[in-house]
């Protein structure tokens, strides 16, 4: 078994196991905790918890104009790499085939050179995110190992993917193997680090949405 076989097989398989276990564990241990039931009277016309949660999840996708200036970099740069990652993962043909191999369905992808362009932009955006984190006194103060590990674990697939498509460094199959291994690492880290925000974002936005909509507070 060479490195590529190991990456495509056992490494990813372990990644999937850990991911499935970890995410299920995190979500179950959170969702099965008793939640607060608001006994105060709801404001007249306040939406139900489900509607309020959903509304908040959507509304919070863009900052309020009051905060536009203060959050401009983080918002725009955040969107760039989040969308970039999404485009690469869900519209890059090799990735679609990877997903098809796992879930059995596929969809049309984008041309390789467009994906490559998006990957370069995503790469630069992630670099910018790190530079920002290292330069901002606030971010320096609140950053933990989790932030840097998560950055690295996110950056590795992008960087190794870029190396693989441009055949830089090692031979292609080695680059491909390293790229796939970085995905396995990503999957393993996911449930235990900051990447869980992909799930938690719905829970925390929803919780606050329901909490404040009950009061008729416009957030």
């Amino acid at each position: 078994m060479d490195l590529l076989d190991f990456a495509r097989g056992p490494a990813l398989q372990i990644g999937l196991y850990v991911f499935a276990f970890g995410v299920a564990f995190r979500l179950a241990s959170l969702l099965l905790l008793p939640r607060l039931k608001d006994l105060s009277a709801a404001r007249k016309g306040a939406p139900g918890a489900v509607v309020a949660s959903g509304r908040e999840i959507i509304r919070r996708m863009w900052p309020q104009s009051v905060y536009a200036e203060a959050t401009r970099f983080t918002t725009i740069n955040g969107y760039i790499f989040h969308l970039g990652l999404a485009i690469i993962v869900f519209l890059g043909t090799p990735h679609i085939l990877f997903l098809k191999g796992l879930i059995g369905v596929s969809w049309p992808g984008l041309p390789t050179n467009i994906i490559n362009g998006v990957a370069v932009i995503t790469f630069l955006s992630l670099i910018a995110a790190l530079v920002h984190r290292l330069q901002s006194p606030v971010l320096k103060a609140i950053s933990t190992a989790n932030d840097y590990i998560t950055w690295l674990v996110t950056m590795l697939p992008v960087a190794t993917g870029l190396l693989a498509i441009s055949h830089l460094g090692w031979r292609y199959e080695t680059l491909l193997a390293v790229h796939i291994l970085s995905i396995a690492v990503f999957l393993i880290w996911f449930p235990f680090g900051k990447l869980m925000h992909a799930f938690l974002i719905f829970l925390s936005r929803g919780t606050t949405g329901a909490h404040l909509a009950h009061r008729g507070a416009q957030l």
Partner: peptide
């Protein structure tokens, strides 16, 4: 396809999720 993993969303992944829950 080359990009498809030889790893699978097999019963083990389901079992891991159940164990996680």
């Amino acid at each position: 396809p080359l990009a498809a993993a030889t790893a699978k969303l097999d019963i083990g992944v389901g079992a891991a999720a159940v164990a996680g829950v």
